[in-house]
Structures are given as C-alpha cells and as structure tokens.
Design a binder for these strands. Sequence first.
DNA 1: ATAACCGCTCTTTTT
DNA 2: GAGCGGTTAT
Length: 766
Amino acid sequence: MNYLEGLNESQLNAVKNIDGPMMVIAGAGSGKTRVLTYRIAHLMRQGVDSFNILALTFTNKAAKEMKERINSIIGGNESMNITMGTFHSVFARILRYNSDKLGYPSNFTIYDTQDSRSLIKMIVKEFGLDDKVYKANAVHGRISSAKNNLISPQAYEANVEIVGEDRMAKKPEIFRIYKEYVKRCFQSGAMDFDDLLYQTNVLLRDFPDVLHHYQQKFKYILVDEYQDTNYSQYLIVKKLAAVYENICVVGDDAQSIYSFRGANIENILNFKKDYPDFKMFKLEQNYRSTSNIVNAANSIIKRNKDQIEKDVWTDNSEGGKINVIRCLTDNEEGRVITNRIYEIKQRESIDYKDFAILYRTNAQSRSFEESLRKLNLPYKIYGGLSFYQRKEIKDLIAYFRLSANEKDEEALKRVINYPKRGIGKTTMDNIILAARQYDVAVWDVISDFNRYPVSINAGARNKISQFVTKIQSYAIQMEKTPAYELANNIAQSSGILKNLYDDKTPEGVARYENIQELLAGIKEFSVQQEEKDEVGTLSDFLIDVALLTDADQEKEEDKNTITLMTIHASKGLEFPHVFIVGLEENLFPSQLSLTSRTELEEERRLFYVALTRAEKSCTLSYVVSRYRWGQLVTAEPSRFIDEVDQSFVNVENEVRGRSGGKSLSGYKRPSDNRTSGFGMMGGKKKRNLTPLGKSSSTPPSKKGNASGGTTEELKVGYNVEHARFGKGKVTAISGTGSDKKASVFFPRVGAKTLILKFAKLTVLES
DNA sequence: ATAACCGCTCTTTTT
DNA sequence: GAGCGGTTAT
C-alpha cells in the first residue's frame, strides 16, 4: 500500500473509494490529476482489469502523461490497455469501428472548423441567401450548439423557441441550412467535431447491442474536467455508466470556462439527480501557489454568485504580491514583460520553461513574440495557427483524406486544381451544379461521366479523368501500404513536392521544409504503429491529425521555452512565474461578454484560472492604447484588477488613469521616478496618445531601462537603489554595451550581479 | 485559365 | 493587419 503514502486525507478517501458513483470537487492546484492517476492505479491494484477502464481527459497529452504516471506507480505497461483520451478521440475510434451501422464509410473524414465553415458558405450561396446575413461563423455556431444539445435538424425546425430566436435575429433560414449541412456532410462521408459526440449518441441509442457491449467493457468510468462537458457528452457517459454505475467525475465549477462550446454546469446538478446516493469528495488544500496568490484568487472568485461552496486554502508561504504593470502600448507591453522575464531568469537562474505569458485572445501574442525574438529568448506559442493548419500541410493532408475517402468534398475542392492542372472555376461550377441536380457527391460525377453526364469540354474532361485515376491509385494502397510509404508517394506523384521545391522564395523554402517535417512525423507514426504490431495506415494517421492539438505534439526542443498561450489553453497547467497580459476592459473581460451576468462570470472564472496557474509569482499588465483591427484604440484597465483584494496587490506604476472608479492614485511606485524606463515613458507621453503609433513601437529598447545617464555613467563605489533590492553599493563593473553588468552589494539581500540593460537601478547622490 | 490587385470584414475562447 | 472573395488585366 506504500504507493498511497503522500496523499492527504481527502485525496486518499477519493482514491480508495472504488465502487459506485462519486464526484470530486477539486479546487485549483489541489492535486486533482494526482487523485485521478492514483485512483486508476489503485483500481488496477485491486484487481480491476485495465481493459475495463475508460478515462476521459481534456487533452490527449494529459492522457499520455497519466498513463506514464500510472506505469511508474504500479510498474509494467499495463496502462496501455486503458481506454484513455479526449471524448472526441475516444469516440472517433469507436465510431470508426461501428461506422457501417450508421451508414458512414469506415474511413469517414473528420471535418475541422474550416471545412464546416466552407461547406456552410457554399450552402448559403447555393440557397441564394445573403452571406452578410448568414455569416458562416454564426450559422456554424448555431448548428454546433444544436448538435451539442442533441437537437436534430427535424427537431430544430419543429422547435418553436429556437426557430423563433432565428426569426428574431432575422435569420429564419438557418434550419434549412442545418438540414442541408447535415445531408452534405453525410453525403461526403464526413463527421464534424460535434458529430463525433452526436453520432456516438445515435449509435448508443439505436443499437442496444452496441450499447450493451460498451457498458460491459467500460465497467469503471472516470471523467476529468467534468464542469466542461456538454449535454451530448453528459448523455454518453450516463448511458455507458447505466449498468454498473461505477462512475467518478472530477471537476471544479470555479474553473468552468467552456460554455461557448456548450459546456453546462448543470451537468453537475444532473449528476446529483441521476445518482442520488453518490459520494462527494472535496479537495481544498492548494499545493501549487503562494498564499498571496491563493488568497487573491479566492477574493476574485467569491464575486461570482453561482458556485459550489468550498474553501481553498494553502500551507505555502506568503510569497510576493501580485504585481500590476501599466504600459503605454501593446508593443511596450511586449518589451516590458519580456525584459522582466529576462531579469528574473538572470537573477534567480531558473529555466525558461518556468515562465508563461497568458492572454485572452490569440492575436495578442504578436508583440510578445517580437520582443522575445529581439532578445533571442526561446519561446513557444501554443494555439493560434498550428502546424496542421498551414496551407501546404492542409493541401497534402487533403490528398490523404481524399485517398481515404473519395467523397470528402472539402478535400476534393482543395486539391482538384492544386498543383495547377487546368481544371478551372467554370468547369468545377458546372460539375458541382450537376452533382446537386443528380443529388450525389461530386466524386460520383467526376468518376463516372457516363452515368452522370455533364456539359464540359473534352479537354477538361480528360484532365479530370487523369486526376481521378491518380486518386484511385492512391486509394487502392490505403489499407495495406504503411503510412509513410504512401504519404511519400503521394507527396511526390501529386506534384506538391516539386511545386514547392521550385519556389525559391524564403516562404517557399519554409513550406517545403514543413512538408518534409510532416512526412517525418508520419514516418515516426509508422514506426510507433509497427512496434504495436499494427500496419499503421495513412487513414489511421488521419484520425490522429484531425484531433491533435498543439499541446499534444510537443517536441523535444520545445521543452525548455517560455510558454505563450491563451488562458483557455493553460487550463490544467502550472508555471512558477505567470504573466497575465492585456487586462483591459473589452478585451478581458471580452466585449462580447459584457451583456449578461453569466457571461461576465465566466470571464471572471477565466481570470481565476489564469491566476491559479501561478506557483511563485503572478504579474498582471494592461495597456493604455492597443492596436486592434489595425488601429490604435485607447483602453481602460480591466475591472478584474480592481476586483482583486488590494492587500494582495502591488501596483508598480504611479497613477491609474481610470475614470470614475475608485482611483488607485494613492499608490506610489516602490522607488523614485527614474528607476524604470517604461514608467518614465508613461509619465511623459501620456497626454498625446494619438501620434504615438509607430514611433513608440520602433525603438527597440537598446538602452532598456537604464535610461539617460543614470546607469551608463555608473562607477565602482556609487550608491544605487534597486526597485526590489533597495539601496546598495556598486562593487564592480563588467561587460560592455548592452552586456554591461554591475556587481552591487545590497545590505538587505546580499551581493547581486545585474545586467544594466534590464536592472532598474537609480544612482543616488554619492 | 490564371495571376495580380483591391476592398471588405473581422476578434473571443477549442475539440 | 491578415485573409478571403471578387474584380480586372494578361
């Protein structure tokens, strides 16, 4: 039993509770993953067959890590038989296995968001609707939430309330688009993300034998991040658990941040209703953060009305206060935060991976990226444009998709004329029109012109036939050729590789390299599969690709880098030093959330999540004016800054220019005015914001914070003052230019060597 | 049929 | 500032 040592009492109780329904409410940093891992290990130790365990995690990476940890607890590699992964990837595989029952090909395509939007655009156009009214994004959102609530097109149309909402929004035709969208996905042998859950529900509803099979298989079910499951997911779990009711859900209502994706806190209430005799466990001791951070986070979250009562506390030391930094522009914010990171890293000689910059929207990454580049600091941006979303990668993958599933229309549209083979828009328009009239997939038409005649000229017809033959020759190899071999073959014979190779522009070279990287990745996949004694076909690879996120495919060289990501993406992670940036009204909280209390509360939970990522220090920053939509717009500090209990906060800059609200102008910077470059800039240029634009963004802080003559004229023996270390005496000077360093003895903290470029030193009268 | 150019919209957040 | 769709010039 020694593996259970080191768990606290409540953790241990949760781990040792084996049978029956249970819920673990786990405060931030309270060892939730630990409990999940140990609980699974404990189940196996108690004789539960690993084949009978289903564990649903939030990312595939989390699943992978958990398996490794389980192995290290109980030894061997028994964890490999556990069904573990995200809802989407677990059920995609189950659907693939049962696809014939639902009338889908076993190699069905998984449409990503782009595919869905593109299809919706096409439908809107074909219906002759105004695409300014029926914006693909909005329509897709509508369809998506219908699916996540298991509302079929028919039910949608019949639902007075929903159709009424659409009519109010002047979009009464959405139900028609929904209907056509579903039909066309099916015709293309494709499921979108929401279908992976929706169709799983259909499968379990309409095929009792299938349901029975998986109920028997998954005798023990665990769901992580339960607060972020939607109705569709809730129902899958409920059905699977219906026989044995060995279900353990873990979550934290205070960290529910995915309601836009249909996540529903009511699932927690439903759980109590479905399993009245469930056991509840609360993990309330935070092991992650300093008490200042825990208390600050608590002071934020208590402003929300809806929440389960709990008391998160910690034994950890007090730590520093939450810093608040004010910058003039987003570019300056980038520089200041980056410099700060460099400074802390030098001072404490810690790793780059100990730092994270978290923001509300992906677009904010730019200014930080630029500054980090300039300072040559290693960083990795998660999310945003991921590797698999680059054009050249999508192009090649579209060939793979089409070879696996010829009816995949989005893939077909992408590659039928790429590389250029003279099949133009007019030809395609004709063919698509014909396909609609015959009511078949586009592929059906182009692969059999005898059966589906189209009026196009002989030249075009010939070119299309060549293309069809090519794809068919790939398709034959799909099931038996190893992924790597076929992928290479396709990359070459499709002409993509040559096309990119001929492009000698820097972008072209980069694209060529990306393709090589993809092929190398597929090679790796093939090898892995062979180790498992499986062939590892390209269509197997495609499932992985569709559901992989940035976090899932971390590379070795990314291991020790500064992390940049959205707060959403940071969920479940932790970092010693966290910077939460862009704390401005209309950005965080987002403008779109300001209309309702529930949405504002979700933003607040998001802020709570961000704060609780931090272990040792947490810094907030905001900006006076920021580029948005290519224009400089003025911003106000976020209400969230004021909402943190001010006894845990250290405001670094002088005046908070917040109109109306309780001003914090009483706060002084810790030291005299000249210490920090950005503070000075703030003071000086505050009054003329408009002409700022480029001029402020251009000068990279060559001089950094050592502005003017202060530190450049520094000599041994001078008395100086540092913002954090207090007063001290210079004992030595070394290095030159931007590398110039000063060794200073501070009576309060001892001897330090500071890089003048970053250190905030003020020369005192000597 | 294609490449080059212009103007419009867009911003949450993700599987 | 980017990406997409539509228009125009070759």
